[in-house]
Design a protein around this nucleic acid. Structure first.
Length: 580
RNA sequence: GCGCCCAUAGCUCAACCGGAUAGAGCAACGGCCUUCUAAGCCGUAGGUUGCAGGUUCGAUUCCUGCUGGGCGCGCCA
């Protein structure tokens, strides 16, 4: 719809360029939708922006632009208002046209091609595989998957990846935790209370039992040499001693122990995400970076370029040279690489694999890592600007008034799986993206359960189902309905009908904004607005009227509404049911 | 102390990358089912956009400072 006005406007400006009033036509002409109906259907501030260059008053320039506007079959009239706005009033045809557009484009209505087939690497969730996903991870999953859909809809080729932290100390702690549960399941009492810094969630019990079915009591003898954890003042040192002892005692059997936890939990995470409609193109293993020597190579590359130094036996990266607060350790004095070192290698590897546009979605608690990762890319001579980091704020869980503690270690958390079972995938997906990513999300379980039927997602789905109901109803009453062909749309003249059509025009605009700003919530808010406009129209206007020309036009309009709702819900990973 | 994010109606949040009189939902109050799904609609009420400056024709939006909150600041992941 904006295109109708933009073309007329640029023609007028071109004329002013030729007459010497202006030096050139601006590259982009923006049109606003005035909040007030008296300000027209679309408004341009171009005269305000160009007044200085034209050396005349904004209103005067606006008058000249209006005078130069060519005749248009879509523009009824326009007027200059306020400080120099040009307000356009459109003919009904301009609004009706959108129905034809929706019919023609169908599932592609709202799509763009500004991505131009560019490949974009999107990393999200990447939670440590030390336990099931909880409701906090769900937000990243819903946000990332929705954003991937939206970007694909705008012409990008999106490669979704999950970075699996399957190496390092956390995995050893997991292995040790599995072992302790293994002992318990064999009826073997622990010589001390279950360590506070071991993982203690119930999800470890079946893993331990499966391990016992697989290996029998083979791992039991090692229990005779468990270190006396009581003599350690620091629980971390105690845990390290336990891990070391297990590695020594179990020898080749440590690997299956290590693997048992990882594989079972990772399989659960994958299944959980798949059921949630979140699909990945790749699962990238941190261990593979280690095994392939990629980490060593990345660190050597930094060293060769003169960006590292040794202090206190550790190898440091001089990230302060690129704006970081302090330098960062790459390799500890004990020879082990830090998590940061593998992150450096991982990001370098993304470039090496041919990705030139990277989007990382991190939990907001990782914001301190932004500077150091960017610094490492710059130091390696990679295009740091190609990396975009989106920080997603916490989802804070409440049970009524009470805040629910969320410790993976302690096993006190509500899993994503539980949440999905309670409120359903559709409501969960929608609820998660209903808020801007940089806002904290208060997720009240009581409210979600108790009012699941009042969730806005039902309001939108209901609008969609109502349209299908209309077509079913028409069939039952023996009334004809418009089929594949778009019927004559001239009967759509009512203000509500034109307002509804205007909203449909906005869908492609919202999709574009949402993609560029990486803000899926824009789609969610738009859908609520569209559903509201539809319900209003539905209540005010009888659609299945006797006169077939009017009936057909109205049915075509509401069918376009249903199509648009379905397209929007699909982007958010929410279903669009035909009956409720 | 330093850094990142946030502050808008009683509550939870929007506001089309600077536009004209800042909008929804929930909560409160009052209406609408003998006709297409009441999981719906209509109406009333609710605001000095945290505070103080600056840039601009024009600021919730951009800049500076302050206040208040969240998070981070380890040779943890």
């Amino acid at each position: 719809m904006k295109a109708f006005v933009t073309s007329a406007l640029s023609a007028a400006l071109q004329q002013l360029v030729e007459s010497g009033t202006l030096s050139q036509v601006p590259a982009s002409l923006e049109l606003d939708r005035p909040k007030q109906a008296s300000h027209g259907d679309l408004a341009s501030n171009v005269a305000l922006l160009l007044a200085k260059e034209a050396r005349c008053k904004p209103r005067e320039l606006a008058e000249r632009i209006v005078a130069a506007l060519p005749e248009s079959s879509h523009i009824a009239r326009c007027e200059v208002a306020g400080p120099g706005f040009i307000n356009f009033f459109l003919r009904p045809e301009a609004f009706q046209e959108v129905v034809r557009r929706v019919y023609a484009e169908g599932e592609r209505f709202g799509a763009h091609d500004f991505g131009q087939g560019e490949t974009l690497h999107l990393e999200f969730v990447s939670a440590n595989p030390t336990g099931p996903l909880h409701v906090g991870h769900g937000r990243g999953a819903a946000y990332g998957a929705s954003l991937a859909n939206i970007l694909r809809f705008c012409g990008y080729r999106v490669f979704c990846e999950y970075y699996v932290n399957d190496a390092g100390r956390q995995m050893d702690i997991l292995a040790a935790s599995v072992y302790l549960r293994y002992l318990e399941s064999a009826g073997h009492p622990l010589p001390w209370p279950y360590p506070s810094n071991a993982y203690r969630g119930d999800y470890l019990l079946p893993i331990a039992e499966a391990l016992r079915r697989e290996l029998g009591d083979r791992l039991l003898p090692a229990a005779a040499h468990l270190p006396d954890l009581g003599r350690f003042a620091d629980p971390d040192e105690a845990m390290d001693a336990l891990i070391q002892q297990l590695k020594t005692d179990l020898g080749a059997d440590y690997a299956p122990l290590h693997r048992a936890g990882l594989e079972t939990i990772l399989a659960d995470i994958r299944a959980d995400l798949a059921e949630f409609g979140v699909h990945y193109d790749g699962w990238y293993s941190e261990r593979s970076l280690m095994d392939s020597g990629a980490i060593t190579r990345a660190v050597e590359a930094l060293t060769a370029a003169g960006h590292t130094y040794v202090r206190d036996g550790a190898l440091w990266f001089r990230s302060t040279a690129y704006g970081d607060d302090k330098d960062r350790v790459l390799r500890r004095d004990n020879g082990a690489y830090t998590y940061f070192a593998s992150d450096v290698a991982y990001h370098a590897d993304k470039f090496a694999r041919g990705f030139h546009r990277l989007v990382d979605m991190w939990g907001a608690d990782h914001h301190g890592y932004v500077a150091r990762v960017r610094a490492s890319l710059q130091a390696m001579g990679l295009d740091e600007a190609a990396l975009e980091i989106l920080l997603v704020q916490f989802a804070i869980l409440y049970r009524g008034e009470e805040k629910v503690s969320m410790s993976t270690r302690a096993g006190e958390f509500v899993t994503l799986r539980q949440l999905r079972a309670e409120v359903g995938n559709d409501a969960a997906r929608f609820f998660y993206v209903l808020r801007r990513a940089d806002q904290h999300l208060d997720f009240d379980l009581e409210l979600a359960k108790q009012r699941s039927e009042e969730n806005p997602v039902y309001y939108i789905q209901y609008a969609h189902a109502r349209v299908y109901s209309l077509f079913r109803q028409a069939e039952e009453q023996g009334l004809s309905t418009p089929q594949e062909q778009v019927p004559e749309l001239a009967p759509l003249q009512d203000a509500r009908e034109l307002a509804l059509a205007d909203l449909l025009w906005r869908f492609p605009e919202v999709v574009g904004i949402s993609a560029r700003a990486r803000e899926p919530h824009q789609i969610a808010f738009y859908l609520k607005e569209l559903a509201a406009a539809f319900h209003t129209y539905y209540n005010a206007t009888r659609i299945l009227v006797e006169e077939s020309a009017i009936r057909h036009a109205r049915l075509a309009l509401v069918r376009a509404v249903a199509r648009t709702i379905a397209n929007g819900l699909t982007l958010l990973g929410v279903s669009a049911p035909e009956r409720m």
